[in-house]
Design a binder for these strands. Structure first.
Length: 552
RNA sequence: GGAGCCAUAGUAUAGCCUGGAUAGAAUACGAGCUUGCGGAGCUUGGGACCGGGGUUCGAAUCCCCGUGGCUCCGCCA
């Protein structure tokens, strides 16, 4: 148990018989005392004045000795708890030990990124990609076994349209990369609008894909190769790896048996038009699970994927991350799994996050209104490089600007609450001042430089100045922030926390000379605070998938 | 037509789930600090809860009604 938790427990225990069901909160202003307990409810129940009650309880508490807090003060209906030197010492020291959470023997399958073959990997994809990676890191940190899964859209109608384009648009240049694919995609959409018979052709290509026509499969192979090359370049830039990579094409056959199961269980029906419909009304709108020509849809394949995940991993928790556009759709899928009485239905979750939009509006591949993620990442690295004033070797320069550039982009996304839309702006995403990843990296680099220059031991003695106390208070909250983020699958609170820690350390750094401290004890204490800060920033940024350069 | 999400300084955001003190940072703007353990920094000033009801000792937070934006609603993914 962490010092923070022990202290909350001690506070709760000490209030037995004085305050019913006490709610321990952490004060924003540490000067009031790190912890506080409001007594309004209690005052109301016992029909006393909250100020008087707080005073009475506080006096009772102050008569006894406590381990983690030394005194309490009543203030406008709150009892404020001033933590003891022992609290600071234990909280900071515990950060030095690389604490491994006990394995909980539970498995989570996190599905994220899911780009579509044939379509650009644009800035919109970054959210699912890094959010999924960080959620995986967080779960691992608290003891889960995590399977990072990518599920490529490799056989939907967009692929069929591209193959159609290759057959119809002979005058376009040969496809060399994914940007050429986009040109084909835009062009064929125009043609289909002009000539509706092409839509029919596209559907027949889809049938051929599913039936395994060799000529079509050969064309499909080219499309896939060019797409995967691009995806892999992006993943390499982001430093993201997957444990398992699947494509929709892996589930075409399996999904047809699920359709049969739905029909057998009378959960689905065949409509007069020939399409198969899963009946979800009245809870949710019905869902088409098979086209009238017998080919599968996203929904069909997703059902098979769910079953596959459970058969292979027997997961305790499964999460799919996509944009919020698909919220209703995944509610439908999960309801259908429930109706099929799948044992894993309750553990199957979807989380939708806000869109990344351009100033011109929502991104659209078919209209060519996209910003390629790779271009953004490379620009970010270039901009970071321009910031570096000192002379480094070419190799160092590349490494530093990569860590700073990519880190800034990641941090800019992760620090925004996932449900919010983000209007994409390169300038805002790649900023190096203020609430940015670079600020945190910089703080850590400066702190590390101090440690390099001394061999003195890092030992915490008494904290006698407000900057050190503030820093220690913030440091002590690290583990509970991690747990909070892991439980809620959030990244924003960790980003916020690391920014606050960096600000607290910067203040400490500017006011407390570490290497020129007045006494040996003070120097050791300051070194301990420095060391603890480094540990926390390194661990925190690592969880966010952000590297720290040695110098910058 | 129906449903979901969102709305906080000029801009971009935290707090909302689980109601508590003076709504917290950032950026931009104003004023200061610099040969340092690295200024990508520190100190400091002014500036915000979409509107209207309700619940409560107490509402940015919960409920209702509006307004504005985004998104979704059977053969796209």
């Amino acid at each position: 148990m962490t010092t923070l938790k022990k202290t909350i427990q001690e506070i709760t225990t000490s209030l037995k018989g004085l305050v019913e069901d006490p709610q321990v909160i952490i004060n924003k202003d540490y000067a009031l005392g790190l912890f506080a307990v409001p007594v309004f409810q209690q005052a109301k129940n016992s029909k006393t004045n909250p100020m008087e009650l707080a005073k009475k309880v506080s006096e009772a508490l102050n008569k006894k000795k406590h381990v983690f807090f030394e005194k309490t003060t009543p203030l406008s209906g709150y009892i404020n708890f001033h933590v003891s030197q022992h609290y600071y010492q234990e909280a900071v020291t515990e950060l030095f030990e690389e604490k491994k959470h006990k394995k909980n023997n539970k498995t989570a399958v996190i599905e994220f990124s899911q780009p579509n073959v044939g379509k650009p990997f644009h800035v919109g994809h970054i959210r699912s990609t890094i959010l999924g990676d960080v959620v995986s890191n967080l779960l691992e940190e608290i003891g889960w076994k995590v399977v990072r899964m990518n599920y490529y859209g490799d056989s939907g109608s967009q692929v069929a349209k591209l193959i159609l384009a290759m057959q119809e648009l002979k005058d376009l240049p040969k496809i060399k990369n994914e940007k050429d694919l986009l040109a084909y995609y835009i062009e064929i959409h125009k043609k289909i609008e002009e000539d509706p018979s092409l839509a029919e052709k596209s559907r027949s290509i889809l049938e051929k894909i599913e039936s395994g026509d060799s000529k079509v499969l050969k064309e499909l192979k080219l499309v896939r190769e060019k797409s995967y090359e691009a995806f892999n370049r992006n993943y390499a830039l982001l430093g993201i790896k997957f444990d398992e990579e699947l494509g929709e094409s892996d589930f075409i056959e399996k999904s047809k048996t699920i359709v049969k199961e739905c029909l057998d269980k009378k959960i689905a029906k065949i409509e007069p038009g020939g399409e198969t419909l899963a009946v979800l009304e009245p809870e949710l709108p019905n869902l088409v699970i098979l086209r009238s020509n017998g080919t599968t849809l996203y929904s069909t394949r997703d059902l098979a994927l769910a079953e596959y995940k459970y058969k292979k991993y027997a997961f305790d928790y499964s999460l799919i991350l996509t944009s919020s556009e698909q919220n209703l759709y995944f509610k439908q899928v999960i309801l259908l799994l429930n109706k099929l009485k799948k044992p894993f239905a309750e553990k199957y979750n979807h989380s939708g996050f806000g869109l990344i939009t351009l100033e011109e509006g929502k991104m659209s591949s078919r209209e060519g209104r996209v910003v390629f993620l790779e271009d953004v990442l490379n620009q970010a690295v270039d901009l970071a490089r321009q910031q570096i004033k000192e002379a480094y070797t070419e190799k160092e320069l590349m490494k530093i600007s990569h860590h700073v550039g990519i880190g800034s982009v990641k941090f800019a996304i992760l620090r925004i609450n996932a449900e919010k839309n983000i209007a994409f702006s390169l300038k805002k995403i790649v900023s190096f001042e203020g609430d940015t990843g670079a600020y945190i990296q910089y703080t850590c680099v400066r702190a590390k430089n101090i440690l390099r220059k001394t061999k003195e031991e890092a030992v915490i003695h008494e904290l006698n100045n407000s900057e050190s106390i503030k820093l220690a208070c913030t440091l002590s909250q690290f583990h509970s922030i991690i747990e909070q983020c892991a439980e809620n699958k959030q990244t924003q609170p960790l980003c916020d926390y690391l920014l606050k820690l960096s600000a607290d350390y910067s203040e400490f750094y500017s006011k407390q000379p570490v290497l020129k401290a007045e006494s040996k004890q003070l120097m050791q204490t300051n070194l301990a605070l420095t060391k603890a800060t480094i540990q926390v920033i390194e661990k925190g940024l690592k969880l966010l998938g952000i590297n720290i350069p040695e110098r910058m």
